[in-house]
């Protein structure tokens, strides 16, 4: 047991003219998840502290927030993972804050829907499964891991400055279908992504890749989509170059 101090962003639209921070000090174990500390505060100190959560082990995407300035899932960061000293907890950036750590996800899901996030295949299905080789399946494996937590898009400077940009999460999900050998919607999807608010807003800042709790190589996926738009080539693997 040791003590931790959490400084948490607070905003209740029914009471507060503007946001403020509250500080809580509590007993913690080094292995406690940040989510555990928030639950403790809500349960024992201040019931009005509001945040989303469900699975508590990094698979549902509910509790993305900024922890010491980085977009993270509160259930995937342990107290011992952080430097000693005050822990700063804030809502994701770039989306309207509704209450405390809860942001309005509507714009995020709207962008997701823009890229046609579903398999398009108009051939009558075979009696059994469609065949796909192990290599074809591996081609888009990484981008199937996305849990739509919004950590990437809300860590993206181009998204902060232009919320019409579809953002990394939408591109990741487009990638998942563009490189799926069974899909026939590639042309249409690439057309959406080639628009001014599509992939070209990406400045290869790498914040998204750093933020992704699923370890998806997002910048690489985006580079592959850019390459596909430019060349129509869906087979080459692209390694993005970090911009200085």
């Amino acid at each position: 047991m040791s003590q931790a101090t959490l400084k948490i962003y607070r905003y209740n639209p029914e009471e507060d003219a503007k946001p403020h921070y509250d500080t809580f000090t509590l007993e913690v174990e080094p292995e406690d998840r940040i989510l555990d500390t928030l639950e403790h505060i809500k349960g024992y100190i201040d019931g009005s502290l509001s945040f989303r959560r469900s699975c508590a082990h990094g698979v549902c995407g509910s509790d993305a927030m900024r922890i010491n300035g980085h977009s993270r899932l509160a259930c995937k960061v342990l107290v011992k993972d952080l430097d000693a000293g005050e822990i700063l907890i804030e809502p994701l950036l770039g989306l309207p804050v509704l209450k405390d750590l809860i942001v309005d996800l509507t714009p995020f899901f709207d962008h997701y829907k823009e890229i046609m996030p579903y398999l398009v295949n108009n051939d009558p299905p075979p009696e059994k499964e469609r065949l796909q080789s192990e290599a074809e399946r591996a081609r888009f494996d990484d981008t199937t891991k996305c849990i739509l937590c919004a950590a990437c898009t809300t860590a993206c400077p181009p998204f902060w400055s232009n919320r019409r940009y579809v953002g990394p999460a939408a591109i990741v999900n487009a990638h998942r279908f563009i490189f799926d050998s069974r899909d026939q919607g590639t042309a249409e999807r690439l057309e959406v992504l080639a628009r001014p608010d599509g992939v070209w807003r990406c400045r290869t800042v790498f914040n998204c890749t750093e933020a992704c709790p699923r370890g998806i190589r997002i910048t690489k996926a985006i580079a592959e989509v850019k390459h596909a738009i430019e060349t129509g080539d869906l087979t080459t693997f692209v390694t993005p170059v970090e911009e200085e």
Binding site: N12, P13, E14, E15, K42, D46, G47, S48, S50, F51, R52, L98, K99, D100, I102
Partner: peptide, 10 residues
């Protein structure tokens, strides 16, 4: 204790 209407998860 949270008496607010919006996102009253308590």
């Amino acid at each position: 204790r949270d008496q607010s209407k919006q996102y009253n998860t308590e």
